[in-house]
Write a protein that binds this DNA or RNA. Sequence first.
DNA 1: CTGTCGTGATTGATATGACTTTAACACCAC
DNA 2: GTGGTGTTAAAGTCATATCAATCACGACAG
Lengths: 245, 245
Amino acid sequence: MRGLVTVRTTELTSGDLHTGVLDQLGALITSAALAEGDVLKIEQLETRFGVSRSVVREAIRVLESMGLVRSRRRVGVTVAPHGEWNVFDPRIIRWRLDGAGREVQLQSLSELRRGVEPVAASLAAQRATPEQCGVMTGAVMDMAVHGKSGDLTAYLDADVRFHRALLAASGNEMLAALTDVVAEVLAGRTHHDLMPARPNPAAIRLHADVAQAVQSGDPTAAETAMRDIIDEAAQAMLGDSGGDF
Amino acid sequence: MRGLVTVRTTELTSGDLHTGVLDQLGALITSAALAEGDVLKIEQLETRFGVSRSVVREAIRVLESMGLVRSRRRVGVTVAPHGEWNVFDPRIIRWRLDGAGREVQLQSLSELRRGVEPVAASLAAQRATPEQCGVMTGAVMDMAVHGKSGDLTAYLDADVRFHRALLAASGNEMLAALTDVVAEVLAGRTHHDLMPARPNPAAIRLHADVAQAVQSGDPTAAETAMRDIIDEAAQAMLGDSGGDF
DNA sequence: CTGTCGTGATTGATATGACTTTAACACCAC
DNA sequence: GTGGTGTTAAAGTCATATCAATCACGACAG
């Protein structure tokens, strides 16, 4: 009978109810709308979201497993300090990218990427299959084509394909799991107009260098070329955004 | 009344019931005792663990949020393909380290670390506070002392303290979140007798170099020195384990 | 006045039964 | 065979009852 009284606010998810509650609470916490130490009562949440106890509890459990909240008897559900968050949880990353902390999150991810991708390149040079090499070189060719034509969307797509293949070829599942992170960084750069109107040919060449080094099984060359890619991108973003300097 | 009938097997956790179920199921899945595609029925799990639906459901929800299982109506809870696992989830890492896959997991973590720590060093050189520098240099001194005396346990402790401080000083929460990972790699090396009986003095010097570079605000030097640390460790493990070669 | 102990109130944790929704599967008509 | 349709297993949701922890507060001894 609860559903008749309380209008279910912001029916974001068509699927399971707990997902909706989870998403909303997660977004609130990660956006600091709920600050560390804030206390939630399960009963409040039931009425607030117009769902039953089971649903709220399941959402809370998941939030707890992400380290976002802690649940204690007689006290309630309290928002945990940032230091306890599982900041690698894809949902948390997503919430922060979608919320106010987008810039900060992208900064963190970029720094992480700078460490991860060179290692992935090095490992890929030792482990990549011919198929994976093919995907990479194909992606580089597409980058060249769309870079020349100035189609930034298609360029981004090829770029993501390249990095996805590289991370997969690293043969390390943890590195591979960061594919979405890297893709997000690349996309963020494009969508924030931090890309030059026409991609730097040098960047494309560097991608080709990586592909070449991976294919010929040269870990060191692959690693340094990949580091150059990231440094080049950083340079491009620091310089004028739009010119070809 | 269920509790009177079914003996609660392996009461591993003193705390919440769902944690116990979660741990057991998680360990089973990550150890491949439950393979991809295997199907679990909630009702089965109720009787198997001697707990109520609420408890099972909450555990399943968390497993689902980790990407270990997927729950679908009319079919049950199925073990998800490895590619969907949130391999950065601390619990998953823990389960794998404690289970049969320990070696593989440590290998993944080592490779990840090789990418992460140099970046962390670079960032720390730009952001570390004097206090953090103090902790690092103090840790290096302890490493020197215990290294000379051959007390590997105390050496490990100082080593972990050093790397913990460095990652924290990076000012990047994602890098900082990998502290436990790095600590685990370092500990694994010691506990698997992959350390020389007496730590290489060169390794200690490299740690000092990093601390020095961080303190003087030299990102490049910090990064390369950190890379040297990791390469040295790899060398030491490849070489004879015990001698001073 | 202070500290200890007991007791009640508050809130999460668990158990359970009833009902709803989804979708796999089988059956039937064509 | 192809396609529509009904059956039904299993998860999803709701509501309620009871258990258990623990915090607040007050009584009481010192």
